[in-house]
Lab assay of single mutants.
Amino acid sequence: ALNRGDKVRIKRTESYWYGDVGTVASVEKSGILYPVIVRFDRVNYNGFSGSASGVNTNNFAENELELVQAAA
Rank of each mutant, 00 (worst) to 15 (best):
Y18H: 06
S15P: 01
Y45F: 10
A52H: 10
W17F: 04
G47L: 05
G31P: 09
D6Q: 03
S15C: 11
N59S: 12
T13L: 12
D6P: 02
L2F: 14
I32F: 09
Q69G: 07
V43K: 07
S30V: 09
V68Y: 04
I37L: 15
E28G: 10
E62N: 06
A61R: 09
D6E: 02
R42C: 12
L65N: 04
Y16E: 04
L33P: 13
G50L: 06
V27K: 03
N58H: 14
F40V: 01
G47M: 07
L65I: 04
V68M: 05
Y34L: 10
Y18R: 02
S53N: 11
D20E: 10
A70H: 10
N46K: 05
N44C: 15
V24Q: 01
L2Y: 14
A1G: 11
R9F: 06
R9N: 02
I37M: 13
N63Q: 09
N46H: 09
A61P: 00
E64D: 05
V36Y: 14
E28M: 14
I37E: 08
G5L: 02
N59G: 13
I32W: 09
E28F: 11
F60P: 00
K29L: 11
A70L: 09
F60K: 02
P35F: 15
A72H: 11
E28V: 12
Q69R: 09
Y18E: 03
N63S: 14
F48Q: 14
Y34I: 03
E28Q: 12
Y34N: 08
D6A: 05
V38W: 00
V55I: 13
V68R: 04
V36M: 02
T23N: 02
R39C: 14
L67C: 05
R4A: 11
F48R: 03
A25V: 15
E62F: 14
V24T: 01
R42H: 06
L65G: 00
R42Q: 05
T57M: 10
D20C: 13
T57I: 11
I10V: 14
V38Q: 00
V24A: 00
W17Q: 01
S30D: 15
L33E: 10
W17I: 01
Y16G: 02
S26H: 15
Y45E: 15
V55N: 06
E66H: 04
G31A: 12
Y34V: 03
Y18W: 05
V43N: 05
F60Y: 07
G54V: 05
D6M: 05
G54N: 04
S26N: 11
G5Y: 03
N56S: 07
I37T: 13
L2E: 04
L2T: 02
A71W: 15
N44M: 15
E28P: 05
V27D: 02
G19K: 06
K11L: 15
A25S: 10
N58A: 15
V38F: 02
V27G: 00
G47I: 07
I37C: 14
V36I: 14
E66W: 04
G50D: 13
T23L: 06
Q69C: 13
A72P: 12
N44L: 12
R9P: 01
T13C: 13
L2S: 03
G54K: 05
N44E: 11
K29Y: 09
G31M: 10
V36C: 04
A61C: 09
N46R: 03
E64I: 02
A71H: 10
T13A: 12
K29S: 14
N46Q: 11
I32K: 08
F40M: 03
G22E: 01
N58Y: 11
V38G: 00
D6H: 02
P35R: 13
W17H: 03
A70K: 13
A52N: 12
N59L: 05
N59A: 14
G19E: 05
V27A: 02
Y34A: 06
V68G: 00
T23A: 03
Y34E: 05
A70R: 15
G22A: 03
N46E: 15
V8G: 01
S53E: 14
L67I: 07
G31F: 12
R39Q: 10
V8K: 00
T23V: 11
E28I: 12
E28D: 13
D6G: 02
N44S: 06
K11P: 01
A71Y: 14
L67K: 05
I10P: 02
V21D: 01
A1E: 08
T23K: 04
V38N: 00
S53I: 13
A52Y: 10
N63K: 07
V8P: 02
R4M: 09
P35E: 11
V55C: 15
N59W: 12
E64R: 01
D6R: 02
T13M: 14
G47V: 08
D6K: 02
S51T: 11
E14M: 10
S49W: 08
R9G: 03
L65W: 01
T13W: 11
R12S: 06
F40S: 00
N56A: 06
A70N: 06
S15F: 03
N59K: 07
V21W: 03
Y16V: 05
G47N: 14
V21E: 03
N59H: 12
L33W: 04
V27H: 08
V21L: 06
V36S: 00
V24I: 08
F60R: 01
S53L: 13
S49E: 15
G50M: 07
A72M: 12
R4K: 11
V55W: 07
D20R: 07
V55Q: 08
V8S: 01
P35H: 11
A70E: 13
D6W: 09
N44Y: 15
R42P: 04
Y16I: 05
N59P: 08
L2G: 01
T23H: 04
N63F: 12
T57P: 03
I37P: 00
S30T: 14
E64W: 01
N3M: 14
F48W: 07
D41E: 14
V43S: 06
I10A: 01
T57G: 04
V36K: 00
K7S: 06
G22W: 06
W17N: 00
E66M: 05
S30I: 07
T57E: 11
G54A: 07
I10L: 14
S49H: 06
R4I: 13
V27N: 03
S15V: 03
S49K: 06
G5Q: 02
L2P: 03
I10C: 14
G31R: 06
